Structure formats: structure tokens, C-alpha cells
Amino acid sequence: MTVARAGMRSVAAVAAVLLALALAACAPGAAPPGATEEPGDLPAGVTAEFQQGRSDVAARQAQVVVTNGTDETLVIGGVEVEDARFDGPAVRVEDRDSTIGAGRTVGIRVQLPAVACDDDDPPADGTTLTLEYTLEGASSSATVPIDDPLGFVGPLHERDCRAEAVADAAHVSFTDFDPSPPGEPAALMLGVAPTGRAAVLIAGIQTTNLITFEDGTGATIESHPIGLQVEEGGNGLVEIQLPIVPLRCDPHAVQEDKRGTIFDVEVEIDGEPGEIELAASEDVRGQILTWVADWCGFGD
């Protein structure tokens, strides 16, 4: 009986040790390298912001700027940004991992989806980031609110929804470009083709950082008046000749151009004034930049 009881006590002791080891393996912070943790907040010391720089605008992109304030290397995988003002998530442009060293900051580009425009139920503010990451050998994900410190999402949503309303009334584009010799204005043609579905006033068009307008007397103006009223039920293409001259003639303005051929068009919808962005096509943009270089004398 004594030997039997001793054997039973030994078995119980071994079982207790095995149970303790199993519980320890499940305890927080005990995940082995390569383990996957449950989704939660970002690790302490890791922060993220949602930003859009000038170089992101033409491609309709933005950046999730991640700062790794930990002492370990952080690897970022999947990135998604959700906002009710968009009709879907913004996802990273390149399907790859981003390695961020301790104390470093990296901007991860995401492609912005179309905006969600609903006048009856305007979407609320608020942007959420979902991030897949690996830190200290453990992989996890986090879904957290993300700040938009430059406040670009609200104006982008407003501008794009206004552009949708304008497009419902008319197709507006640059249809042609006729270059000019130095000292004379070139002709940029603005085409307005009514859809017949709605009305809009095309009030004017503004100078860019590269191009301005000649007023007919040799002087330049920041905003060229147009005053074209598109009526509901209207049809037929209307073309307006815009007399343009370079705003500046330093070579790097052309060489580094990103927004020189993106114009702000002044419009009015249902009595409400506003602006939309109108970009020249790649073909027209190339013609304009070549003309600026020739007009300014550094094209050779």
C-alpha cells in the first residue's frame, strides 16, 4: 500500500508540473517566436497618422505614417484605412512588407477609393486603421482610430462630391492646346458638354503654381471669368479659349512639376459656390510643359 501511494503521489506531482507549464505557455507575454496574438491596440510606442502630401494628390493616394517608438524592429504587412466618407477601404499600393527600425518613421502609401456622396445621410467624421504587424517575433493586428492631422479627408470628400454633382450636369475637360511664341499667350481650350440631367454655372478658372491667364491687355489675372450657365436639358459641346502664359520661368518649376496643370474651376450648384479640380490629360500636360520650357527659353 505504501509503495502504491507513493507512486500515485509521483504521478500527481508530474501532472501538476505539466499543468503549470501549459498555463505558463498560455500566459500573456509568453508567446514563442512566430506566434500569432489576438487583434488589439497598437503596441506601446507605435503611432500612426493619415496624411496626404502634394506628391500624393495627382495619383489620388495618401500615406499611413507609422512611427516605431519601440526598441525592436517593426514589420508592417497589410494596411487598410476605413472612413465612411469613402465607399470602401484605402489599401496599400504595394503588396509587400515594410520594415521599420527602432526609432524610425515610414510612410506607407495607400490608394484612396471613390468618395461616398449621400446628401440625405452625410457620413460622419472618423477614420479607422487596421494594421498587420510583427514585433519581437510575434505577429498580430490592430484596429484603431487614426488622426488626420492635416485635415485633408473632409475637403477631399467635399470637393469630390461637388465634382460628382458637376459631372451630373456636364462633362468638363481640356480639349485642345495651341502653343504660342515667347511673349504671347497660348490657347488652352476648355470644353463643356451638358448631359441634360442637371444645371451648373461654370463661373471661372484659377491660376496654378505654373500657369496664369492674360487679360487681353498684357496683364495677368489670378482668376479668368467664364460665366457659362449650363441648363438642365441642355446639349452640345461649348469650347472656351483660355489665354495662358507661364506664371514663372525657373527651370525646376517645370522639371519638378506635380500640380502645374491641375486647375481649380469655380462653379455654382443650386446657388452654392465652390471649386472643383480639373487636371489636364497626360498628353495636354506634356504639351503645356514643353511650351513653357520653349516660351521661357530653357527648352533646348
Rank of each mutant, 00 (worst) to 15 (best):
D118H: 05
S55I: 03
F152E: 07
G233T: 09
A59Y: 02
S98G: 04
D270W: 05
L18G: 05
D41W: 03
A280F: 00
D148S: 10
G78A: 14
R248Y: 05
C249G: 10
G126T: 06
T105V: 11
A163F: 04
G204Y: 03
R159E: 13
A6W: 05
A4Q: 10
R54L: 02
Q63A: 13
L278T: 00
A167M: 05
E277C: 02
A253F: 11
P194E: 04
I146H: 04
G286C: 07
S139W: 03
E80G: 06
P225T: 11
P43M: 01
S55A: 12
G107E: 04
P89F: 08
P194H: 07
R92N: 15
A279C: 02
L74D: 04
D176Q: 09
A187T: 15
G45L: 06
I269N: 01
R162F: 08
G216N: 09
P89K: 15
D71T: 10
A167G: 06
E164S: 12
E37C: 12
N68L: 08
P225L: 14
I262T: 11
D147M: 08
V144S: 03
L21N: 15
A25K: 10
D148F: 04
A90N: 06
L228Y: 13
D147Q: 15
A199T: 06
A165K: 10
E80Y: 09
R96L: 09
G260I: 05
D83E: 07
L228K: 03
I269A: 10
A4K: 07
L247Q: 11
P32E: 09
Y133F: 15
P155Q: 02
P39R: 13
V200D: 00
D250E: 14
Q111I: 06
S223I: 15
Q229K: 13
N235A: 15
G101V: 10
E94Y: 08
V292K: 12
V267H: 01
Q51W: 08
G183W: 00
G69I: 07
G274Y: 01
A35E: 07
I288F: 01
D294E: 15
L247D: 10
T143S: 14
R159G: 13
G151F: 09
I240L: 13
N68E: 10
V81L: 12
V46M: 01
V292W: 11
I146V: 15
P33F: 10
V172K: 05
A116N: 11
A169K: 11
A62I: 05
S173A: 12
Q51V: 14
K258W: 09
R109Y: 03
R109M: 05
L129Y: 06
V81S: 05
M8Y: 13
L74C: 12
T212D: 12
T99A: 10
T261G: 01
V110S: 08
E184Q: 13
L19I: 14
V57C: 00
V79T: 14
D176C: 01
A6P: 01
A84I: 05
G234H: 06
V106K: 15
P32V: 04
Y133M: 09
T175S: 15
G137F: 04
L242D: 08
I276P: 00
V64H: 11
D168A: 14
D283F: 08
M8L: 14
A31F: 06
V110P: 13
